[in-house]
């Protein structure tokens, strides 16, 4: 019987028919999606922290308004995604708990510090650029609520990347100090961004199943190569360079070759030993705990209003 269900399920996926929350699905599919979507949601929420760092210090009002809007978008993206994950049967509180206890991961990129204003530019161009590369195929995810959430996310994400590029472009055309600041930010954010696509294909055991279930449409290495190809061209417009001596156009493959990735660094950050892992988690937990009285007050107020209404009705 189980077998039949599984066949019907795979048949739907193969025909590009979306799976909806109430449809039968393999338990592993459900668990994989819960992990992936909640991890994605956590990344949006934690992703606000490195940028929030610069809201009060944005160089002018225009930049400040833009950065505020961007950070607000990230909060929105987190909420779309948490809701999508909840349709699979996990509660919001469970997900928060997994984040706050360190059980759930979020994208390692947010464990790097934002040292200068140029970092906001580099994050927009590289980090959001890599995120978009990952996210566009997710709009065709086999799971309906995830796909629909991603359509909204992708629509909004494009401004994030453009504003980042604009920041770097402005700096690169500025004084020597500003140029250096831009180059330094690109130097620091490039490799972590390249790592954002995750482990190499032959070390990514879940890829095969995720591709079969159409949770994933491209492999990590395919997306990474696409990202490198695009950035290698875009960096020329900035008049900056990418910190990779092995970066070179390869006419035979029609792609850019690039240098070796420091996977030790990648796994160290994943394991919690990145420069800001502890700080991010502490900030996030503090925000949640400090907000407790607001949530309690809102509940109390709603209760009071409900009682008032009941008295009036009686």
């Amino acid at each position: 019987m189980e077998k039949d269900f599984e066949e019907i399920f795979q048949d739907k996926v193969d025909k590009e028919i979306k799976i909806e929350p109430k449809d039968w699905m393999p338990e592993k599919y459900r668990q994989t999606l819960i992990r992936q979507i909640s991890q994605h949601a956590h990344s949006e929420i934690v992703g606000m922290l490195p940028e929030g760092n610069w809201i009060t210090r944005a160089p002018n009002l225009r930049r400040k308004a833009i950065l505020l809007a961007k950070v607000q978008d990230e909060a929105g993206h987190g909420l779309y995604l948490y809701s999508a994950a909840e349709t699979l049967g996990i509660t919001r509180d469970e997900m928060y708990d997994q984040l706050h206890t360190g059980k759930a991961k979020y994208s390692s990129i947010f464990n790097y510090p934002t040292l200068t204003w140029a970092d906001i530019g580099a994050i927009g161009w590289l980090v959001d650029g890599a995120a978009i590369m990952n996210q566009v195929p997710l709009c065709r995810s086999s799971f309906g609520p995830y796909a629909r959430a991603m359509v909204r996310v992708c629509k909004e994400e494009s401004f994030h990347q453009r504003q980042g590029f604009e920041i770097l472009l402005t700096l690169s055309k500025g004084t020597e100090a500003q140029r250096n600041m831009a180059q330094d930010a690109v130097n620091r954010w490039w490799w972590p961004s390249v790592m954002m696509f995750g482990p190499k294909d032959d070390e990514s055991p879940n890829t095969i199943m995720s591709m079969k279930w159409k949770i994933k449409r491209f492999t990590n290495d395919e997306l990474r190569q696409k990202f490198v190809d695009i950035c290698a061209e875009q960096v020329k417009i900035l008049g900056l360079t990418l910190p990779d001596n092995d970066l070179k156009w390869n006419a035979a493959t029609n792609h850019y070759d690039f240098g070796a990735i420091d996977w030790n660094e990648f796994w160290e950050v994943v394991k919690g030993n990145g420069p800001c892992n502890k700080q991010r988690l502490d900030t996030r937990k503090k925000a949640w705990e400090d907000g407790a009285w607001v949530r309690e007050a809102a509940s109390a107020y709603a209760e009071k209003r409900k009682n008032k209404k009941a008295v009036k009705a009686a």
Binding site: G76, L79, S83, R92, A302, R305
Partner: peptide
Amino acid sequence: HVGSLHAVDAQMAIENARDVYTRR
């Protein structure tokens, strides 16, 4: 239908929906 969110009551749900789903 655009999605869902948590709120204490209908009024808060409408206000939050404004922020989450109509920023543009």
